[in-house]
Design a protein around this nucleic acid. Structure first.
Length: 573
DNA sequence: AGTTAGACTTAGTAAAACAGTA
DNA sequence: TACTGTTTTACTAAGTCTAACT
């Protein structure tokens, strides 16, 4: 309570009990995962052709073939790496006979299979209401049975209780493993984690779990090893759960602690730009980028295992260009690299002279593919940060800068005289400033142009409606002047109201248009969900009388329940 | 100090659900 | 009621960071 400043009255779920260091729970009971439905072989009449001739595939080979057939319309089935990886893995599933016959992917004809799946999905769309209802009910039953667990004294929602079905791997960007077969996960691959005194979930009949363990130092319920990267996948709780909410709260508290010492840290790294030690200078310049530009830390990645993307510490010489002068500004650094998810980061930033000179130094005698910060990695950087503040790591700067930006922008942009839609536009703009800072992008929605046109025609229609209403008001006024009776006075009043109402509607539409246009390629969700201290938003809503539902939908309100409960209108990040 | 496994957060996209309208 | 555009949810890949190990 001292920490949250909430006083003794709060007995919210997320802070009712403190565990000793590292202990995550005392009791954990769940039903285990839901497996992907077994493969259903194609009907006899759906054919696969090799080299122009019908060929009946073994069940295993057929299953993998259907994965490819389902993706046929996608551009990546034309990519060489995808095809090569797919074919290699597909051949592993073939019988020796199939292997000797099928030697070239380009001779494979999946079009009939593809048509069949298209027809299937068409049929699914055309299903009757009753059939759809039945499916919905089945899903609800599954959720009810497997979608919840008991952790300590609470029934909690599980985030992903379904095991990922087999299919073809498609990484993002230019991924060297695209097209590889993601194998089917069996109970024998699964590790169950639950408490000893709980009812241990039963494996499907005829199967066994790989292991059942009782580790209360971790939060996951189920894990398995995935075959593409060999990494571990987990089933964990929903963001609305106590265990996630508490962690989220902690994250923002760490960022708030950074707020208290960020000036000192900034002074420190500016000093370090002058250090005799190259390692210290590199660390200081990198930290400056992380702080100023909200770059990610940039761990090393194994070459050939993933797409070639970088973060701050892994920047290479080829990713920046130095301009002593550009467009009337001095010491401009031009960044151009692929970050997480192969999203391009492109930015031209004027920097301080010392930073610029240091960068020139770091780049001396290097090839484009050499590391910019050759004496630095995330581990060195984070160790240093740890010394500056307990719990400080590179990512805290992103959280801190995102949240502080939201708070500043809200202060700056909110106009007390605005109505609610206009205030919400201001909120979205503040949110947008953060999304731009963090480089959260999205592909422009496929229907974007069309939807803008629709909105514009709505606006035009509304304008005409407004003009009509005004004309009517005018004539009613004239009429009232002549007649001077109650009835015509009343008519003027109601016409006035009508004009007002339409004006408001028009304004709302125009605001919506602006908002949408500005948002074309920017994704607000990621920052809202992961970087913005929700208490800032809650406080803002309280201060301006905006219903919280206008800012957070149901899921978001569940995730941020702790903040909605905690924050008052005077909350300061 | 470097390497790797493990656990957890952050990320964009596709599918599903919903809401508004013809 | 069917359709269409928008919002929400599901999905799972791709990061960060710690700790154990060498």
């Amino acid at each position: 309570h001292l920490e949250c400043g909430f006083g003794g009255a709060c007995l919210a779920v997320w802070e009712e009990e403190r565990y000793p260091e590292g202990i995550k729970w005392k009791f954990l009971e769940h039903k285990g995962p839901v497996f992907a439905p077994p493969y259903e072989p194609l009907p006899e009449n759906v054919k696969f052709y090799y080299d122009g001739k019908v060929m009946k595939l073994s069940t295993k080979a057929e299953e993998v073939a259907t994965f490819f057939a389902k993706m046929l319309d996608h551009e990546y089935t034309t990519k060489e790496i995808f095809r090569k990886n797919f074919f290699k893995d597909w051949r592993k599933e073939m019988t020796s006979e199939e292997k000797s016959t099928i030697t070239s992917l380009s001779k494979c004809d999946f079009t009939h299979m593809s048509q069949y799946f298209k027809a299937q999905s068409e049929a699914r769309k055309q299903m009757s209401k009753e059939e759809k209802q039945k499916i919905k009910e089945e899903n609800e039953r599954l959720l009810k049975e497997y979608g919840y667990c008991v952790m300590d004294n609470h029934k909690e929602r599980i985030a992903n209780f379904k095991i990922e079905p087999p299919g073809l791997f498609r990484g993002r960007g230019n991924h060297p493993k695209m097209g590889m077969l993601k194998r089917r996960i069996m109970p024998e691959d699964i590790i169950i984690n639950c408490s000893k005194d709980s009812k241990i979930p039963a494996p499907p009949p005829g199967h066994k779990w790989k292991e059942v363990r009782h580790d209360n130092k971790v939060t996951w319920l189920v894990s398995w090893t995935e075959n593409i990267q060999g990494s571990i996948k987990y089933i964990m709780l929903n963001p609305s759960s106590r265990i996630k909410g508490e962690k989220d709260w902690q994250k923002y508290e760490t960022a708030r602690r950074l707020k208290k010492c960020v000036d000192k840290i900034r002074n420190q790294y500016r000093e370090d730009w002058k250090s005799k030690e190259m390692k210290v200078r590199q660390r200081a310049v990198a930290l400056y980028f992380i702080d100023k530009l909200a770059l990610r830390a940039g761990n090393e990645k194994e070459e050939g295992e993933t797409a070639d993307t970088v973060g701050c510490c892994s920047l290479r010489v080829e990713h920046i260009k130095l301009h002593p002068e550009l467009d009337g500004q001095e010491y401009v650094v031009e960044f151009d690299f692929l970050g997480k998810d192969s999203i391009r980061y492109y930015n031209k930033v004027p920097v301080e002279k010392r930073v610029f000179k240091n960068l020139q130094l770091f780049m001396e005698n290097k090839q484009p593919e050499d590391d910019l910060f050759d004496r630095l990695n995330t581990s060195i950087l984070n160790k240093h940060l740890q010394d500056l503040m307990e719990g400080l790591t590179a990512k805290v700067f992103r959280t801190y800068n995102a949240s502080i930006t939201l708070q500043q922008q809200l202060k700056e942009l909110t106009n007390p005289d605005d109505n609610i839609p206009a205030k919400i536009l201001s909120y979205n703009r503040a949110n947008r400033a953060v999304a731009i800072l963090c480089n959260h992008q999205r592909a422009p929605p496929k229907t974007f142009e069309k939807s803008m046109m629709n909105l514009q025609s709505k606006i035009d229609a509304k304008k005409e409606q407004l003009a009509d209403a005004r004309r009517e008001l005018k004539s009613a006024k004239a009429d009232a002047k002549v007649r001077r009776d109650e009835k015509s006075k009343k008519s003027v009043e109601s016409k006035k109201k009508a004009v007002q109402r339409i004006e408001e509607q028009l304004m709302k539409l125009e605001v919506q248009a602006t908002d949408r246009e500005e948002n074309k390629q920017i994704a607000l969700g990621t920052s809202k969900l992961n970087y913005l201290d929700p208490r800032i938003s809650v406080a803002w809503c309280k201060k301006w009388g905006i219903p919280i539902e206008k800012i957070y939908n149901k899921t978001q309100r569940e995730k941020f329940a702790w903040a909605i409960d905690m924050a008052e209108e005077d909350y300061e990040f």
